[in-house]
Design a protein around this nucleic acid. Structure first.
Lengths: 343, 343
DNA sequence: AGCGCTTGCGAAAGCGCTTTCGTAGCCTAG
DNA sequence: CTAGGCTACGAAAGCGCTTTCGCAAGCGCT
């Protein structure tokens, strides 16, 4: 709302530097057509005057929009807040603004938010978080993003592979395998999985890794109990209850993210089932509190902050013909929530 | 960057509705000078066409900026991510965009970010997080915000009182008192405080409450060991080490936020000092993981999400002559990290 | 010396919107 | 029946920037 009047405009800078408005603009945007000598002087004058472009005018005039839209499922989930932290860091370094919005893990709402960002003319869109096993909305999202790109927008996603855009891909399958292999190598044979919402690709991928671990030991993967609940702490509680009720002889629970693992631990604690003596529990992500839980959680570490950084850096590179993919790597972090099963 | 061409403009809507551009604009912004009948028709047409205003054009033309700038110390700190969640919720309901940036707990950098937000013409600024006991930068910040407001911008802050703007104020002093009183009533007499950075008003206020609790029992507040380190988990670790070294007979540690409490707990765990048997520990904030720590943390709950919501709601109200203040209230949440001292 | 190129810069045309100003048309009062 | 005042709307002037276009100067070539 701030009214005009007080603010410094580009004309003022141009005047002070003794050049035309056009030259001033070119100097500051780095366009060529200006001698490096003049450009430097203009930049100098602008800086000394404390000039800051008006992004609205710039964008309206057809320049690059300097804001990046970030879509997360929920910003007060540590997984996403760490990613957001990474994105904001890079944006800060580049002088970009970050517009953040929630998708609430609802594909339709997410699509609405993306449309909104596009309508708001952001220059870059970063979408963090699992995709959905719902071909229809995924296709709609994909179409929207493709159109956005063809108009010059840049896109990168984190943890989604079906969108045909640059992607940072967490090692979900390999991490799942590592978790499964870890428990199996400790001697566990009666495992159960606290999985997130069925429709999320993250869940599918991590599950696939777990199953592969089972099969690689020649075990019957089809008999593995898998409980699908929300991908949250609360969901973890419900899953734990269900597992304990229907499969009381389980010795190890694989939660497909740390939030769920926290729910699982909380139920076990409430029931005084000792972890890891009577039950081993593993999570996934290694959110920063995982090490402080009771007991400290064995989990797979994903470099969330870096993932956020990488995503924005990827999006900021000149576009490539084919979608780029960056894998994140992962680390199995063994802490105190796993041990060999009691005999 | 998206180029023109494909996008629907207000002229298109006006044409479709058979009115002039001016009338269309007035209809959509709710300005009067248009009969309700025509206005309704225009809105109808706009909606059916799927029209979305171009915020850059709108803002440039002098309309209200529809974005809110949110300054947090660090978004991947649960305290701030929960606040951000609340702000984003309200913004989503109001169709506003949230631009988020970090201050990194550095008053100068924060001021830079605020200037940047203003230069970017946001309409609303929300500043979350402790103020600084540094009169010079606080004054500069205040001046900047006042100028912003006088130009029509709206501002609200969370947890700062010296800025002369609408504020949501956490019950820091009262919460500190509650914590102190709780430990004292359990019988502790040798307390120590793991305090955050000296220059933060949040620290000062919470400290004041703790001291009041001591004095209200006629105890000597001046002999209370207070260790100032970073207001983070890491700072908590260092503070705990220092307390154990210099005041080995301490029976209760008051950490001035949950992050520090987590650090304290982690050091105690490493040293196999049992909590709460040998040492009671309390935190402040009640971030969502506090209940899942080992042991579950006794702390003071602040409604962070609501604080974010309240701040934006406050800022969105018509400005008042005097700065408004909303207190948040607090709740002492007693969990498993506190017990009477061992005799 | 004359031609076409490239290079460096300025003038001016928008970008899509809000808003001021002007002008019908209508109502009320004299 | 007309003067004055509303009200509902349209025309057009910007908001501050980027960019196209045009022009002048400098270059190498024939």
């Amino acid at each position: 709302m701030p009214k005009p009047g007080s603010r410094l405009r580009l004309v003022d800078v141009a005047e002070a530097a003794g050049v035309s408005l056009a030259t001033a603009s070119r100097s500051l945007t780095g366009r060529d057509g200006v001698s490096e000598e003049v450009a430097a002087r203009v930049r100098q004058v602008a800086a000394s005057l404390g000039y800051v472009v008006n992004p609205y005018a710039r964008t309206l005039a057809g320049g690059a929009s300097s804001s990046v839209g970030l879509v997360v499922h929920q910003v007060d989930d540590p997984y996403f807040s760490e990613i957001a932290g990474g994105v904001i860091q890079v944006a800060g370094e580049q002088g970009l603004m970050v517009q953040i919005c929630h998708s609430g893990r609802d594909p339709h709402y997410e699509l609405r938010q993306i449309r909104h960002l596009i309508a708001q003319r952001v220059g870059v869109i970063i979408i963090a978080g699992s995709g959905y096993d719902d071909p229809r909305t995924e296709a709609a999202t994909r179409a929207e993003l493709t159109a956005f790109q063809s108009l010059g927008g840049r896109v990168a996603v984190i943890g989604r592979h079906a969108l045909g855009v640059d992607a940072v891909l967490p090692d979900n399958e390999a991490g799942g395998y590592a978790l499964g292999a870890h428990l199996l190598s400790l001697g566990h044979r009666r495992l159960a999985v606290a999985a997130g919402t069925g429709g999320l690709t993250t869940v599918t991928d991590r599950m696939a890794g777990v199953l592969r671990a089972l099969r690689s030991l020649g075990l019957d993967a089809s008999s593995l109990p898998v409980v699908h609940t929300d991908f949250t702490r609360e969901g973890g509680c419900r899953a734990a209850e269900e597992i304990l009720r229907d499969h009381p002889d389980t010795t190890g629970i694989i939660a497909l993210n740390d939030a769920m693992a926290m729910g699982v631990l909380s139920v076990l604690r409430g029931l005084k089932i000792s972890v890891p003596r009577k039950m081993s529990v593993v999570g996934f992500d290694d959110v920063s509190v995982a090490a402080d839980l009771a007991p400290a959680l064995t989990t797979v570490r994903l470099p969330m902050t870096d993932m956020g950084r990488m995503a924005l850096e990827l999006a900021l590179k000149p576009p490539s013909a084919r979608a780029r993919r960056r894998s994140t790597g992962h680390t199995l972090v063994v802490r105190d929530s796993t041990a060999p099963p009691r005999r």
